[in-house]
Design a protein around this nucleic acid. Structure first.
Length: 844
RNA sequence: GCCGGAGUGGCGGAACAGGCAGACGCAAGGGACUUAAAAUCCCUCGACCAUAUUGGUCGUACCGGUUCGAUUCCGGUCUCCGGCACCA
């Protein structure tokens, strides 16, 4: 087998007839990669005569090694980029490095090396691996988020946010990962665990920097509707995450505390007359004041302290019992004047709504269970059937809509009218108003870590919080060398970094020592790609206006909320600031599936890892790319199959052999001049393949079926050669068929296609040829096979002229011998004919 | 609980607009070539039945509906995957 032969071009005796070259991917691939690099083949420049197309794969974290997931995204992006180039677009296809982050610090400890050194080594290595895959990147546009000339602009964007009131500092209960030794954004906590290290996240009360993403909640939600070419599942995930609910904020006056009130949020103001109690979050600021001096004081404060110590998982677990303690105080229902007890409960979250909940046990299942547990009254105020449910016998809350009862002047209204009526009434009384709340929280961006972009803020004793002036950017990271306690000290551990002077008053000041969340750096990198070396601003507006938006973005589903939400937020802020024209960064999104093997994610512990390197070494990049695109449609999970790879390699060798054999033949034989039926059929196969491949890549992103269409074409060419050997073959038609096949293969297997292209003596690069166009005339057939059904079951097949009219078709169907026999003694009820497809005869 | 996606041979998958279910590939079996192996080529390959070289029945998770005709459309059920969830 060729793959085990020496790397040099080996000649061997084939079929006793020709001396041929073996398909040697390593040699071919290295040679073309070198050529493409020398010729700056993928350089993108503004060209107003062409339509631009921005193809982007999510840039990687430079972990040091490429895995199959990487190979899959890049292969998808590369096929699209090359295809679009051939279709005449001005394609930009850049690549860079999301280079800040924790692994570099861990590696620094392990290898006693500066994080930046480790990162740069990894980048060099991964870049080589990428290039071995034959990817069409414009490396002139490479960006590295950890380089000062990049994070300078990340800091600049932070200051822009600050100026616009979107970056602020507050003390709040935040997620703390003890393993990573830093705080985390809500989006970075998955089921109570740190997204990076999977250890349990604690809650801590800290003063931190936030970005006001909640200001954009409505826009981020609404604009999902204009993203028609995003997968539904990603949009749904973002909608869920933003979590919009409509309702009312209602103020309950406090008995014994004149002028004080508790504000609650509810989606069901129509149930206000059914409120029988109220529950505050343990963190609610009023708790301490309410219990002060009551006999419940000690118990409540102890309860509050205990709950606040619990971790996020403990507190939100399904098993956690709902506990409530009476504060000894009462609130007044704003519509009924009724006095209701105020409790403190472990299930109420301070961060959502107002941190206080009105309890309506008859119409909320959780309130119902809570009321039963503590023997609190249950009052039905929404009736939904003929019988009014009895409060004693109810087994569950009724949470649907209905007619309002026991609700004073509002009796008889339906729920939706009641919501409006009650809220309007409350607003008139100054006791409430319509309100929309979101689940989305502001983005916590401080990280107590070294390897990130420093937050460009200075604290001055006289002036307070002072943003670093733009001209002083970047605030550069000090060189990290010393390691303590098995960790790289964060910036607070570098006195020369911390001590500075205030730019306003010139007095002594200290720098902010937290760095920014790495997701900040990746929220705008696509903009930097348009002008990566620009020194006057984060990007050159001329370039950004030409290239943006990203027309096709490709990446993993794991960023459905995280990166994709943050990047949309940044884009909207920059649009509001007048810096860019687009409102959404990514027009079209392809969320590719994961790569599995033997039913599990590839992992060292399972021993099922296959690396791109070993595939390239053994079969060549072209084979690996072909398999990864052929095995499944891109958005589905892919099952890695070693035998499947063999199959794809076999196919490429088959293509190679076909070309070699034909080349010999063209030299040694004359061939025949007149194209006949066999040649027309071959041409039909060619043009059918062109049509299908074009549609499958360009419209459907189904590379697997595009590849199978090329395989069918190759099979057809083999069949033609076999059916008409030697001098009876038409060399011109054959040569043309091979040429088209190579063009169709070019996006998938760039090296092999380029090699064949040149071996045929064609000029230029195959990747700069116009994409083949199918000729409808060549697709036309004279005769078609039509299925004859009786009662919907296939009973025969007839071959008729392609444009046979309906009546003749039916006649032909009826006169088919077998059909005729089956029709004896039957009454024909109806006949349906679809020209070119089928005839269905319905009988009794 | 709410929301989204999916369910087709031994396997990955195909069927684009309601019209021959299983393209293409993998695996498997048989054969050719070869001293042999590799490579390559040819044939078979959903299940069951049969009078078994050209026939029949069933078959796209399940039950029903619409239709001349349903993997495809509609209603319901089940299972799996994913997101959100003590969210007021």
């Amino acid at each position: 087998m060729s793959i085990n032969l020496p790397l040099d071009r080996a000649d061997f005796l084939y079929g006793g007839r020709f001396f041929m070259h073996v398909y040697n991917p390593t040699e071919i691939e290295e040679r073309w990669q070198q050529r493409w690099k020398e010729e700056n083949f993928y350089r993108a420049v503004i060209d107003d005569t062409k339509t631009k197309y921005f193809v982007l794969e999510m840039f990687p974290y430079p972990s040091g090694k490429l895995h199959m997931g990487h190979m899959r995204v890049y292969s998808i992006g590369d096929v699209l980029a090359r295809f679009l180039w051939m279709r005449g677009y001005n394609v930009i296809h850049p690549m860079g490095w999301d280079a800040f982050g924790l692994p570099a610090e861990n590696a620094a400890i392990e290898h006693k090396v500066n994080p930046s050194v480790w990162t740069m080594q990894n980048i060099e290595h991964m870049k080589k691996q990428q290039n071995r895959l034959g990817l069409s990147y414009d490396w002139h546009r490479e960006v590295n988020t950890s380089a000062p000339d990049y994070y300078r602009w990340s800091q600049w964007l932070f200051l822009l946010m600050y100026r616009r009131g979107l970056a602020y500092r507050k003390k709040a209960g935040v997620n703390w990962c003890a393993t990573c030794n830093t705080v985390l954004a809500n989006e970075q906590v998955e089921k109570g665990l740190c997204w990076r290290c999977s250890s349990a996240v604690e809650s801590r009360e800290l003063e931190q920097w936030f970005l006001r993403i909640t200001d954009y909640a409505e826009q981020l939600l609404n604009d999902l509707d204009i993203l028609e070419d995003w997968p539904e599942r990603v949009k749904v995930m973002q909608r869920n995450w933003i979590g919009r609910s409509e309702g009312a904020e209602i103020a309950f006056k406090l008995k014994d505390f004149p002028g004080q009130e508790i504000r609650t949020f509810t989606t069901r103001p129509d149930t206000l007359f059914g409120v029988t109690y109220m529950v505050l979050a343990p963190e609610h600021p009023l708790v301490k004041q309410l219990v002060e001096g009551t006999e419940n004081e000690e118990a409540v404060l102890e309860f509050v302290a205990r709950v606040r110590q619990e971790s996020e998982i403990e507190r939100t677990s399904d098993e956690a019992p709902k506990v409530g303690l009476f504060t000894g105080r009462f609130a007044v229902n704003p519509v009924s004047g009724e006095e209701i007890p105020v409790l403190v409960g472990n299930y109420v979250l301070m961060a959502y709504g107002t941190g206080a909940v009105m309890g309506v046990p008859a119409h909320d299942q959780r309130d119902f269970l809570f009321a039963r547990q503590y023997s609190l009254p249950i009052r039905v105020v929404i009736q939904h059937s003929e019988e009014e449910p009895s409060e004693e016998t109810m087994t569950e809350a009724y949470t649907g809509a209905g007619r309002m009862v026991n609700s004073g002047p509002f009796n008889g209204l339906n729920s939706s009218d009641g919501i409006t009526a009650i809220t309007t009434y409350l607003a008139e009384q100054g006791q409430g108003h319509f309100r929309i709340t979101y689940r989305l929280r502001d983005w916590l961006i401080s990280r107590q870590r070294y390897w990130g972009a420093p937050i460009p803020i200075v604290y001055c004793e006289n002036c307070g919080i002072v943003p670093v002036p733009e001209e002083d950017l970047p605030v550069e990271l000090p060189v990290a060398l010393e390691l303590s306690d098995n960790r790289v000290p964060n910036l607070a551990g570098y006195p020369t970094f911390v001590q500075t002077t205030c730019s306003t008053c010139g007095g002594p000041a200290r720098r902010e020592t937290d760095t920014m969340d790495t997701f900040i750096c990746s929220s705008w990198y696509f903009l930097r790609f348009t002008s990566p070396n620009y020194v006057d601003a984060p990007f050159d507006s001329k370039e950004v206006d030409y290239w943006m938006p990203v027309d096709q973005y490709v990446g993993g589903i794991e960023h459905a909320v995280l990166h994709l939400l943050y990047a949309r937020f940044f884009t909207k802020v920059l649009n509001d600031a007048g810096l860019i024209k687009v409102k959404e960064p990514f027009s079209r999104l392809l969320a590719q599936g994961m790569v599995y093997k033997d039913g599990a994610k590839m992992s060292k512990s399972k021993g099922n890892v296959v690396t791109p390197d070993e595939i390239v070494e053994r079969y060549g990049a072209d084979t690996g790319r072909l398999f990864i695109l052929f095995a499944a449609p891109p958005e589905k999970d892919l099952d890695w199959s070693d035998q499947g790879v063999e199959g794809c390699h076999r196919f490429l060798r088959r293509v190679w052999r076909l070309v070699e054999e034909c080349a010999m033949q063209f030299k040694g034989e004359r061939g025949c001049a007149d194209p006949g039926e066999a040649e027309m059929e071959l041409q039909r196969s060619v043009h059918a393949a062109i049509k299908k491949v074009t549609h499958d890549i360009g419209e459907r992103f189904n590379f697997n079926t595009a590849i199978s269409a090329i395989m069918e074409l190759v099979n057809s060419i083999y069949a033609y050669r076999q059916a008409s050997s030697g001098d009876r073959q038409n060399h011109a038609v054959l040569r043309e068929s091979l040429k088209q096949t190579v063009l169709l293969l070019a996006p998938f297997v760039p090296h092999l296609a380029e090699e064949i292209w040149h071996s045929f003596g064609y000029g230029g690069s195959v990747h700069r040829q116009p994409w083949p166009q199918y000729d409808p005339h060549k697709l036309q057939v004279n005769e078609v096979e039509v299925v004859v059904q009786i009662n919907g079951k296939v009973r025969g097949k007839i071959t008729v002229p392609a444009n046979y009219p309906e009546d003749k078709l039916i006649e032909a169907a009826r006169s088919n011998q077998r059909v005729d026999e089956l029709l004896i003694g039957k009454e024909i009820v109806k006949t349906v004919a679809v020209p070119g497809r089928l005839v269905n005869i319905v009988v009794k």
